[in-house]
Simulated assay, not measured.
Amino acid sequence: MEIAKPFPILKLPFLVLIDIVKNLKKLEIIELSLASKKCRLIIKSIKIPNPGVDFKLVTSTELSQTANDGRVPCSQQQFNYLTNYLKLRTYDIDGADITVEFERAWAEYVCDLFGNNISSLIFDSNISDLDLASLSNWINKRQSTSKMRLCRLYGDCNDSDSISQFFGARTFSIYHLSIQLKFSSKVTPINFGTLDMDEFVAQDEDIKHMPNWISVESVLTSNCVRIWIELCPFTATDLNRIIKGWINGNNSRLEILHLAIKPFDLDQFVEGIEYEQREFDLLRSYSWNSDVMFRREVTIRKGFDIVGNDGTVATFKIENRRWNDERLWDFTLVVWKNGC
């Protein structure tokens, strides 16, 4: 059997080498950078297209499963090289001893290699010994001017305090915040501070325990463009406060608010709110550009118009739907920034 000879890639003309590197996948570029210091310096000198860096903190179980199914083809040699380069102690690659310290150092290495900041942060809130406030402060320092495209939290949530500490320490900007936590019945709402991201999405499929994602006060003081919450415990009184808050000038950036909630008293909801019911044949659509949200368009038939104190018109609608044999209402509020 003929043994393949090494290919002297570094002896190629530099312009040819640039084209080769630009056509490699991100993981292939990282692997090439680990070959030698010269490779790393060459890659750093090349402007890589779309060099977004995704940072995911996983549990030991997840890391072992990922390595076993081949999604992250890594080797002990690569980890040893990285460990030596970062001047850290040796860590096993089966997930048993990999710590947040190593993962941060790994993220710093990749960000430095591509000359970019972290574009997405995804983590399981149940990772043991994970200091979320410290994690938030680390990101604050390393990308004070760059907006993170995506921040996603997932896993079981039995205590919201540590998550609240993460957002309490946060000063970095987020475009899309996704919460995919399974709340236990006694968990208090997460304190997000000021919701100033463009998109906030919270999802759960367990209707037995309506998750306390967020407080009414957080919605009232938010500065989000789009808020989309599946399974929400808000009441008619809560929605009445939110609508009146918008009318009085809260969250001038808001374009859409969607909540999946249990049926409520309509008279209590509209108390003190002036509205106009529109004709059945009237169809209006709101669409938006997003590379993260699964929905990018909402169509409202008929609906009820309200007018803010600044003259801006918004429309709310309520629709029935079934969820695991339970009856829910989809409440949607659309603000027509460019007229309706």
Results as ranks from 00 to 15, higher is better:
V298M: 09
I9M: 11
S128K: 14
K182A: 02
P233G: 00
N320P: 08
I127H: 04
E103K: 04
S162H: 14
T90H: 09
I214P: 02
F200Y: 06
W138Y: 15
Y109Q: 09
F7E: 02
V298R: 14
I9P: 05
V307T: 14
L266E: 14
E279K: 03
V21E: 01
D94L: 07
F331D: 11
S185Q: 12
V307C: 07
R40M: 05
P8M: 02
K317T: 15
D206V: 13
C74W: 15
L150M: 03
P6H: 01
S185W: 10
R40Y: 03
G70D: 07
A169R: 06
R89N: 07
S134F: 14
E205I: 13
E230N: 04
R89W: 00
F294D: 13
D281C: 10
K38T: 13
E274N: 12
E103M: 08
T312E: 13
D310H: 12
E217K: 04
K182I: 11
S120K: 10
A4K: 13
E217M: 02
S173M: 08
V58A: 00
D265Y: 07
D291C: 14
L10W: 08
S290L: 02
F166E: 06
D291M: 02
D159S: 14
L27C: 00
L220Y: 00
E108M: 09
V187G: 03
S60E: 09
C39I: 03
T194P: 11
Q65G: 02
L17K: 02
G155C: 05
N117G: 09
S222V: 02
N251K: 04
F200Q: 04
S218P: 01
S125H: 14
